[in-house]
């Protein structure tokens, strides 16, 4: 490993700077606590039994740790009339998010590549129009999209939701890739053209391997957006094809019986786990991609 970049830097010494430093860390620690508190409450509540929740306070830690709530949230909590837990809906979300992320990222990369490296008259206009899509609120496209899905016979299905997310995500993915490719030297593309590669040859063999950082950013962004989406999910799917966000809502907002806070919390964490996982896994690649680019040249 390389030495840390800060290790050799001359820094001021003395009481004043020590105090400043302590103050700085105190403030940072405070903010850290502030942001972590909701997660702590969620995790601790999900590990308590219902009786303990009724007796204790919100912030008290679980006395006897139990995973019953997690098990129930996963495969026996009632979502509407069906009591199979979140499990089937997790699969819905995965079946929706994975293809939608792959499609929107791939198409966005090709768009960005064509708009920057194979410029044609009106390219800037087309980019401006695509970019416009990034500023259209979800709610505005609900009705036209519902019509479109109906016409295509995809209403109420997971493939329909994939289409919606792919189309809606294109504005963002195109923007990300375009901005990345602008910084890729045209000389490299010229060299590849002289070397005999064509549009897709250059794209797949030269440009895409260089774009790992952009791909990772886009995948994190798209996956988070698509996985966490509630509005399109609730509007364009029904019952068994609901994504997990809609199912979570149905678990938490159930109006019958006792309110099972521990199950609600466990369900919420389960629904959020994949995005965290993607961030942790892809985030490592992201940092690696950045430092690979940081090498001179």
């Amino acid at each position: 490993m390389r030495q840390r970049r800060t290790s050799g830097i001359v820094q001021p010494k003395g009481l004043r700077s020590v105090l400043m430093r302590m103050g700085l860390f105190a403030v940072l620690g405070l903010f850290c606590l502030y942001y972590l508190l909701p997660l702590v409450v969620m995790v601790s509540t999900s590990l308590k039994s219902l009786a303990e929740i009724r007796e204790g306070t919100l912030l008290s830690l679980p006395q006897a740790i139990t995973f019953d709530a997690w098990a129930k949230a996963w495969d026996s909590a009632c979502v509407g009339v069906r009591c199979d837990g979140l499990k089937p809906f997790m699969w819905n979300s995965i079946a929706m998010a994975v293809p939608a992320v792959i499609l929107s990222t791939t198409l966005g990369a090709i768009n960005g590549y064509a708009l920057t490296k194979w410029r044609f008259p009106g390219a800037d206009w087309i980019f401006a129009l695509i970019l416009f899509g990034a500023f259209i609120p979800f709610q505005v496209v609900l009705l036209p999209m519902a019509r479109t899905l109906g016409q295509l016979g995809l209403a109420g299905t997971v493939p329909g939701l994939i289409l919606v997310h792919t189309v809606y995500g294109l504005a963002f993915t195109t923007l990300f890739f375009r901005n990345f490719f602008v910084s890729v030297s045209d000389g490299i593309l010229q060299a590849a053209k002289v070397d005999g590669a064509g549009f897709f040859g250059i794209f797949f063999r030269i440009v895409l391997p260089m774009s790992i950082p952009a791909i990772v950013v886009t995948v994190i962004w798209q996956f988070t957006q698509i996985w966490n989406d509630f509005l399109f999910g609730v509007a364009f799917t029904i019952g068994d094809s609901n994504p997990v966000t809609v199912a979570l809502n149905n678990v938490v907002n159930t109006s019958t019986g006792v309110k099972e806070y521990n199950v609600d919390m466990a369900a919420a964490i389960i629904a959020a786990l994949p995005t965290m996982l993607v961030y942790v896994v892809a985030g490592a690649y992201f940092v690696r991609g950045l430092s690979a680019g940081a090498v001179k040249g």
Binding site: G187, I188, Q190, A192, V194, D195, G196
Partner: peptide, 30 residues
């Protein structure tokens, strides 16, 4: 005639090497 069919080779000011490829693949890519 596109560059690939002109029977030319070019050396660029910025070198324009393919950063993700090894020297071997850079040279043999064409």
């Amino acid at each position: 005639v596109p560059p690939r069919d002109r029977d030319i080779a070019m050396v660029f000011q910025s070198y324009a090497l393919y950063p993700t490829k090894t020297v071997r693949d850079n040279i043999t890519f064409g």
